[in-house]
Design a protein around this nucleic acid. Sequence first.
DNA 1: ATACAATACAGATAAATATTCTTTTTATAT
DNA 2: ATATAAAAAGAATATTTATCTGTATTGTAT
Lengths: 157, 157
Amino acid sequence: MAYSLDKIDLQLLEILQKDSNQTTKRIAEQLGMTTSPVFERIKKLEKEGYIKKYVAVLDNKKIGLKLTVFIGIALQGHTRSYLEKFVKEINNFPEIVECHRVSGNFDYLLKLVVEDIEAYETFIISKLTLLPYLGNVQSLITLSTGKETNEIDLSRI
Amino acid sequence: MAYSLDKIDLQLLEILQKDSNQTTKRIAEQLGMTTSPVFERIKKLEKEGYIKKYVAVLDNKKIGLKLTVFIGIALQGHTRSYLEKFVKEINNFPEIVECHRVSGNFDYLLKLVVEDIEAYETFIISKLTLLPYLGNVQSLITLSTGKETNEIDLSRI
DNA sequence: ATACAATACAGATAAATATTCTTTTTATAT
DNA sequence: ATATAAAAAGAATATTTATCTGTATTGTAT
C-alpha cells in the first residue's frame, strides 16, 4: 500500500519548501522532536518521491533576465504527431520555463523568461513564428509580479 | 560598483539550480577546482542576492494537488487603491502560487494549484467571484504539462 | 484488559562535510 | 620586470550528517 503523509510529514514538507538549507537539528527543533526521526522522515520523503529535488532559487532580475511573458497559443491542426512535435520544439527553446497543454481558448500556454522586450521580440520573430500551424497567438507581458513561488500551501491537505 | 558574474559563477549557479544538495567537494570537482574557492563563491552569490534561497521541490501530484489552472482577469475599474487591494486579497488565497500584473487582453494573470476540478470550482465560486469590479475572466485548465521549472538557462548571459 | 509485535523515538557516536585560516599562485597595472 | 591585488589551493578545525542501540509508544489479537 502507498505510504501516506501524516501531520508531521506535512509540516516537514512546509519547512523544507521554505528553506531546505537548515540543519536537521534546527528542523527538529521547529517540530519539537529530536534529529533522528526527522532525519529518517526526510529520507523517506525523498525516497518515496514526495520531495523531487533541492534547488537554489535565483534572482532572475539581478542576473539580467528582467521580463516574464505568458503566451497563449492556438494551433490550426491537432494531429497527434504534430502536437508532439510542437511540444518537442518548444522544450528546446531555453527561454521557455513552462509549457502547458490547456483547455479553453488556447491549446498551449507558455511561460517565458527573457532579458527584455527586445529579446522577447527576437524570440517571437526568429523562433515562435517559424513553427507551422500556428493559429491565434496572444502574449501577456508581465508588468509586475505580486507573487511567484513554488511553495504549496499544505495546510489544506 | 556592482559585483558582476564571471563564467565560473554562472556555471556554479547552473549547478546549484539543478541540484543544491551536493557537497562542495562534488561541485568543486565539476568545476575543476578545490573546495575553498567554490565555497567562497557560493557564499558571495548568497550574500549578493543572486541566490535567494534553497528549497525542496515537491511532487504536487503525489501530494494530491493534481490540477494547475491559469486565470486571466480583466478588471472594470483601475484606480490605484483598488488594484492594490485586489493584489492583497489575491495573495491571501493559498491556492494561488503566482499573480502577475500584465499588459495585453487582461490585467492580471493568476496561476493556481488545486486538488481537482471541484476545488477549482469552489475557488471560483466562493473566492474569486466575490471580488468586486471583475470584468472578463478566462480560465485555462492544464491538461498536461510538457515543461515546468524555475531553472533558467544561463548559457546566454 | 493484557500480551505481543511493529513502529517510532531519543540519545550517543563515528564518519563525512562545511568552514576558516594561511600559503601559494595567478592576473594586472605600472 | 616588478609590485600589488585578487583568487585559488592546501591544511586544520568545527559542525553536521548518518548510523547504531536502547527505550517508548502505538496498534492488534486474544
